[in-house]
Amino acid sequence: MHPKLETLFEEAENRYLKPEELTVLSQYVESLPERLEVYRQIRDREIDIMQTVADRLTAQFPQESKETLERSIKNALLMLRYCAMAMLLNDEAFVKERLLGWLAQSIQTYKTQPIDSALYKLLNQQLAQSLTAKQINLLKPALVLAQTSLLKLEGASEPKS
């Protein structure tokens, strides 16, 4: 659950919510049907979205091993799932707490920044074709956070010249 909402509920144990607190809660509740729809669309189209991305990535990196490309694609698939859940919860911290910690270790080990950078670009393009602009805007904060954080981690692990 969104940290602000959690705080609201915790603080309201001994009192009623203040008008501004009710506004925050109302905004989240009002956006929930749209968030649910985006989540469902991503879930239902995941295979098509990722297959298109995988096909294009393979064409861009014909010299890379199948295992390397598959690892990056699987990581991106997991990233998309976690970002969709963060969007549903309206909680970017979900990405930081649940995804970046363990995925960062995997990514740093394999040093796939050029592949991952291209993959994220392809994924973003495919999402833009699969979702409306409004739906993308709901998903974007979590997606940008995950992608930029993971690419920074990869870049930090490479030796400086």
Rank of each mutant, 00 (worst) to 15 (best):
M1S: 05
H2Y: 00
P3T: 08
P3Q: 03
K4Y: 01
K4L: 10
L5N: 05
E6G: 07
E6T: 13
L8S: 03
F9I: 08
E10T: 13
E10Y: 13
A12G: 15
N14K: 13
R15G: 11
L17R: 07
K18D: 08
P19Y: 04
E21N: 11
L22C: 07
T23Q: 14
V24T: 14
S26R: 14
Q27F: 08
V29S: 08
E30I: 08
S31Y: 07
S31V: 06
E34W: 10
L36C: 15
E37H: 15
E37F: 13
Y39I: 06
Q41S: 14
R43C: 12
D44P: 04
D44V: 02
R45Q: 15
D48G: 14
D48A: 14
M50E: 05
T52I: 07
D55T: 13
D55S: 12
Q60P: 00
Q60Y: 09
F61N: 02
F61G: 04
P62V: 10
P62I: 07
Q63E: 15
Q63M: 13
S65L: 05
S65A: 10
K66I: 04
L69E: 05
L69F: 11
I73P: 09
I73S: 11
K74C: 07
K74T: 13
N75W: 12
L77Y: 04
L78N: 12
M79I: 07
M79S: 09
L80H: 06
R81E: 12
R81D: 10
Y82P: 00
C83Q: 08
A86G: 03
M87Q: 14
L88T: 04
L89Q: 06
D91F: 09
D91W: 00
A93I: 00
F94V: 03
E97D: 10
L99D: 01
G101S: 00
G101K: 04
A104E: 09
A104F: 03
A104C: 02
Q105F: 05
I107G: 03
K111D: 03
K111N: 02
Q113K: 11
P114N: 01
P114V: 02
D116Q: 11
Y120N: 00
L123M: 02
Q125G: 03
Q125R: 09
L127S: 05
L127A: 01
Q129W: 01
T132F: 07
A133L: 11
L138D: 10
P141D: 11
P141M: 05
P141H: 07
A142T: 08
V144L: 05
V144I: 10
A146I: 05
A146L: 06
T148I: 02
T148P: 00
S149I: 01
L151G: 06
K152M: 05
E154V: 03
E154I: 03
G155M: 11
G155F: 07
G155C: 02
A156H: 05
A156P: 01
S157K: 04
P159S: 06
K160S: 10
K160E: 12
S161I: 08
